[in-house]
Computed example of a mutant assay.
Amino acid sequence: MDWLQIVLLSIVQGLTEFLPISSSAHLILVPVLTDWPDQGLAFDVALHLGSLIAVVLYFRRELAAMTASWGRSVAGRGTDEDARLAWWVILATIPVGLVGLAFKDAIEVVMRSPLVLAGGLIGFGLLLGYADWRHRGTRSEYRMHWRDALGIGLAQALALIPGTSRSGITMTAALLLGLSREASARFSFLLSIPVIVLAGGLETLELLEASTPVAWADLAMGTLLSGISAYLCIHFFLVFIRRIGMQPFVVYRLILGVALIWLFG
């Protein structure tokens, strides 16, 4: 891989992993538009590792409090809001884990066409726009109930449909359930941690079985750039989400979906 491919793919992954615009659509478009060879599974693992490091670092204080409180709740020493939030993240992860294991091969083989991506971008983009337009919620992620977590988790399972966007569909569900924009985004970002760990773990197992040569310098650069861009994306998204809302991302999704139909239809 040349340096330009490494830089562009790393930044695209870091930004689109957390913005509600579908990382799968962008990572498929980049090699099509540039005529670059496939970056390979090892580089995909490195990019996901960078995104994971970024979100863990950004929410390190919240994660430390959630982990400590969750441990106390498991030991029967009471449950506070941090422990409940940790339980809600676990509960919301179960549906996507089960669906992913059951239908992983079918999704990868059958549903990764550009037109499926376009349909996901447009359809779920309009749903995100509706959820944001009717937004009335003020609850924080610490005021969620188990039903909210389960509903968001079931919605997250839809992200296995290419073009949906994991962050987009979880924010949509959270908005519809009455969470504030900031709380919807924060819970979505917290949910990304176990999802990235699960997906990265599966990719790592496939990589170990393949026993292909590894370009360690490329992987290190990809991890670093993906992590930096993901960290900045999380920070500025949370800073500006109250003012800008979701509509700019909805417009972008519609334009990208139409572009895919035009290119591949």
Rank of each mutant, 00 (worst) to 15 (best):
G100E: 05
E209T: 08
L176A: 13
V110P: 04
A217R: 15
S23I: 09
I255T: 11
L8A: 12
A174M: 07
D2P: 09
A215L: 12
G76V: 10
F187A: 00
D148N: 02
A92L: 02
I28M: 14
M246S: 13
L205E: 12
T170Y: 00
D44P: 09
S69F: 07
G257C: 03
L8P: 03
T34R: 06
I6Y: 04
E206Q: 15
L127S: 05
G71P: 06
F236T: 08
V239D: 13
V197W: 03
L150Q: 02
L41D: 03
I28W: 12
A159N: 03
P248A: 09
V99Y: 11
S113K: 14
P31C: 11
L52K: 04
F240C: 11
R147N: 09
W3M: 15
P213C: 04
S167M: 01
F236Q: 06
T212V: 13
L263Y: 10
T67K: 10
G200P: 02
V251D: 08
V258F: 10
D80G: 12
S22C: 09
G123F: 06
T93V: 08
R134F: 05
V214C: 07
W146N: 02
H26V: 05
L41W: 06
Q5M: 09
S167Y: 00
V45Y: 11
L49A: 15
L41Y: 05
L49F: 14
E17M: 10
L98Y: 10
V109D: 14
P37R: 14
Q5G: 04
A42S: 14
L63I: 13
L91V: 14
L127P: 01
A68Q: 13
T204A: 14
I94L: 14
S51Y: 07
I261Y: 11
M246T: 12
D38P: 10
S192W: 03
G120S: 04
G222C: 05
I152V: 15
L207E: 12
A25P: 05
R112H: 04
G245W: 01
D80M: 11
F187Y: 05
Y252M: 06
T16Q: 07
G227M: 04
G257V: 03
C233V: 12
G97V: 11
P248L: 08
A83M: 10
Y58R: 03
V96R: 07
L117C: 06
I255R: 06
A157Y: 01
H145Q: 13
Y58M: 05
S113R: 12
I122T: 02
T79I: 12
L175R: 00
V56T: 10
G151P: 06
A83W: 03
A174K: 00
A131P: 02
A83D: 06
Y231C: 07
I234P: 01
L27M: 14
I28A: 15
E81N: 12
I255P: 03
G245P: 02
L175P: 00
L177R: 11
R143M: 12
A83S: 12
